[in-house]
Design a protein around this nucleic acid. Structure first.
Lengths: 351, 351
DNA sequence: ATGAAAGCGCTAACAT
DNA sequence: ATGTTAGCGCTTTCAT
């Protein structure tokens, strides 16, 4: 393998423009103390030669790496990819995050690490050492993991935590799960439902609790009981199955159910077996607006989680911080909305 | 921003093991000329200190960057992401490519560039200069673009071309589109269909022609005419609409149609308007096995394109070449298969 | 088989 | 406002 060198370096530009390396560097990094005429001359040389700085060299000299790492849960992500059911969390992160990165000369690198691993710290350390990212975007459940947060903080790496409000280093971003659950519940209440079941998400995720709270609050506001209507879960199909058994039982008698996409798959299955039609006998609201939800029969009413927008905001915050601006450390809330489709209808027996 | 330094460097390891930097470097890179006892001693220090080399520094010193770029068509990819219909081409590339990269200490970086841009070369030059990737995985239509191929070749960057067999630098990989089209056609022939329509893909893609050839060959083998049964297209919905009009017209009278997922969406729409039921009156085979195809009603029989496997093979070839092994330059064919679902049935009026 | 020296492209710190 | 110097972490010569 031939020893590959940069074809156009800062030296070439400096020589071409007849200035020092440092001046070129200043221009590249938009630093002050460059006369406009110098700037123009240097910029002309840069354009002429088609010069683009090497991020490796920039990193080496102790400045930025222009790399942002998007950390996702290894097991879950790979499972989703293999299932091929269209879960597009990663795509939406790329859509929002990558494009925003590109605007500023950054790159987004997707990295997977295990949640339940004793060597989670070693894995992360290795990724940091190898890549030296300027920032890391954390998704649940990593976004609330103190081991991860502390490690990144020690290394002075910017952190954007999606789906976590817990104290700790880094910017916090949410999709307002509390509000979203409220919207979903109120939508059902307005349709006359009084027995609205809620299937919980993985309790390890902070946002699971927020959703429950939103649901509870909306139920309370409507003066409705919640006895027996809350079931445990973990986002997955199996947990949906168990929950459906309970919620659809005669004692509980739910006429509407809110849950994750996978859970509702199971609920629909269950409902079919019991001869319940959606939405005639049972209304459903999904907490994920994935393709599978939109192509379900009937298409499911769903919470639209603005993943791309959140990823974009996360990148923005990280880059701003790199530029020594001090972005607000208040949690950044990107609001989710409810997309009404055909899985929700009037409560059975309601006027 | 504090000047960030590597926490554990090769120096620390060298000091800890009581050897020179060079010896540590040799161990890292599995080079010869290290006594087993030295190797062991150094490896122990590496493990103890948790040392991981900085890829920036490795790149700077003129060796590898451990970065592989996956180049995708910007417009198409972003459109797919925004549509959120589950097209998981990028995910499958990550699944195959990223995991294989990880096995060898490489990273996969997704990069989008415009196809129809006069500054395509400038864009690519910039990406190369910034990242200095060791290899690039090209997907259609980039994989057959001479401007791209030459540029990468000049820079001595390994190339893996998916979906292109044209002469030129780089490894060539295909999913055997010819064979896949044949399988699809033969499946329909076996069901008694004699009027099997084919909606072409974007003619700019080499593989579009391969598919047509496979279909033509199978039709010829079965002794069937193809007059009026081949229509132009570009993979998109609109082209499917136009094609459906022609294929479903009285003169042509197709009882089965092969096309892309988006095209078949349009065909189904058209069929519904004409009161044609699938598969009773019309059989369909999709050339993409995306989620939307699997969740369609009825679920579509589809060609399964092993995207993850191809991406994995692409990464393997690139990494082998980096290691100065000389992988075969013969096209690498990863076979597609046919997944029979419910959109294909006996031809109307057939025994 | 091992080590020492030089340099990759760039920026921070320090002149001027 | 600009230039000079030193050094980032590593690998490639080139010695020994």
């Amino acid at each position: 393998m031939a020893r590959r060198r940069q074809s156009v370096t800062i030296k070439h530009v400096a020589a071409d423009a007849g200035v020092s390396l440092q001046t070129v560097s200043r221009v590249i990094n938009k630093e002050p103390n460059v006369r406009p005429e110098m700037l123009e001359r240097v910029q002309a040389s840069i354009d002429k030669l088609g010069y683009v700085p090497s991020i490796a060299a920039q990193r080496m000299s102790g400045s930025r790496s222009y790399l942002i790492m998007a950390l996702n849960d290894r097991e879950r992500t790979i499972a989703d990819w293999r299932k091929r059911e269209g879960t597009d969390w990663v795509d939406q992160m790329l859509l929002g995050g990558m494009l925003k990165c590109a605007e500023h000369g950054y790159r987004l690198i997707v990295e997977l690490i295990d949640t339940h691993s004793d060597h989670i710290e070693r894995e992360l350390r290795a990724a940091i050492a190898a890549l030296q990212p300027d920032g890391v975007i954390l998704t649940p459940p990593h976004s609330q993991n103190p081991a991860i947060l502390d490690l990144l903080d020690e290394h002075k790496i910017s952190i954007a935590r999606i789906g976590s409000l817990r104290e700790g280093p880094g910017f916090r971003l949410t999709m307002d799960d509390d509000h979203a659950a409220r919207l979903a519940t109120e939508h059902l209440v307005a349709l006359g439902h009084r027995r609205i079941g809620f299937i919980g998400g993985d309790p390890e995720y902070e946002l699971s609790a927020w959703r429950v709270e939103g649901w509870k609050a909306a139920m309370a506001d409507a003066g409705l009981d919640i006895d027996g209507l809350l079931t445990e879960g973990d986002f997955g199909y199996e947990s949906g199955r168990a929950a459906a058994e309970q919620l659809l039982s005669a004692e509980v008698g739910a006429t509407a159910i809110i849950g994750s996409a996978d859970q509702l798959q199971a609920v629909m299955e269950c409902a079919r077996q019991r001869g319940l039609a959606v939405p005639r006998d049972l209304s459903l609201v999904s907490f994920d607006d994935t393709p599978i939800v939109r192509f379900a029969h009937p298409p499911l009413t769903a919470v639209h989680q603005p993943i791309a927008e959140v990823a974009e905001a996360a990148v923005e915050l990280i880059i701003e911080q790199q530029r020594r601006k001090k972005p607000s450390t208040e949690p950044r809330i990107v609001t989710a909305s409810l997309i009404v489709r055909e899985s929700t209808g009037p409560a059975p027996g309601s006027a």
